[in-house]
Design a protein around this nucleic acid. Structure first.
Lengths: 159, 159
DNA sequence: TGTGAAATATAACGCTA
DNA sequence: TAGCGTTATATTTCACA
């Protein structure tokens, strides 16, 4: 690991490696090396270096949420009535830890949090909001928007 | 692969496997089997079955965006002036493919898209909005909110 | 960059409950 | 049907030249 504040300098090969790994972390070193025209040993070395530098922080499996029985997604905007540090961070912890929450964004503006959630159906969504969001005293208002679709973006390195 | 519409039935072991893989896709089969108390052959078999069932769709490396030089994140709400199918899907394609976009949400409500983006600094954020969002004719209005922090949620399986 | 040894993954098999 | 243990083969990883 390195100083997490100072940006790392990457060359073109690093960028291509990161792009490839961001798209498919399961790719084998052999395949990657072949695709980029590197020796396998070199490719493995650079990937390890990127990991040790902290640029690659881990890998997560992507799940088909609909197949798992959670075909409905929503974005829930949460607005607080009180913004003491303790209130905000405690609620943030609680919301992020609630099953069904895919991501919790703490944002600036009129709303405080955006919760991206996946649920079984409309009824489960209503229950989620009532039981796990508005049930917190500090929550003053919520606004729930159905998510038609989520797409992975090009990312900071482009595609 | 299976019929992508019909939910799969998972037992408790499958759930634990998916939770583990969602948190760290890089874990070795040996370690996973040991942790869950399975034979390595059984563990490998079940993981492959989950993959073939389409439950696990892939794996993505997580990058430290600040270390890469993109320490600033924002959520940009995008509202269109015309909602023909062609307009919407074409803009969606263009926005998702724009470098800097981490995720693009197509949502119901007054706003049409939420763009989660990462940029170098405030100036880059302004340029992003002007050059890649409001430059599209069909975009009527945008609203940009700084993202203080993003947390991975517990996910549909809990943590 | 290349090499080689150790660790690991993969896939197939038969056996069992 | 699912789990287990065992094979053999392929692949990855890592230290070193």
């Amino acid at each position: 690991m390195r100083n997490p504040q100072r940006p790392v300098t990457l060359d073109h090969v690093d960028r291509r490696l990161l792009r490839a790994l961001a798209g498919d972390a399961g790719v084998t070193n052999k395949a990657l090396a072949g695709r980029l025209g590197l020796a396998e040993s070199t490719c493995a070395y650079r990937i390890r270096a990127l990991r040790e530098a902290g640029v690659v922080t881990g890998a997560r499996a992507q799940l088909d949420l609909a197949l798992l029985g959670y075909p409905l997604q929503a974005m829930i905007k949460v607005r607080l009535g009180s913004h003491t540090m303790a209130n905000v961070s405690q609620l943030y912890d609680a919301l992020a830890a609630t099953p069904g929450v895919l991501q919790a964004f703490h944002v600036a503006g009129a709303d405080d949090f955006y919760l991206h959630v996946a649920v079984e159906n409309a009824e489960a969504l209503r229950d989620f909001v009532l039981r796990h969001v508005t049930s917190h005293r500090v929550v003053r208002q919520t606004e729930t928007h159905l998510v038609f679709e989520v797409r992975p973006g090009a990312g900071v390195l482009g595609d």
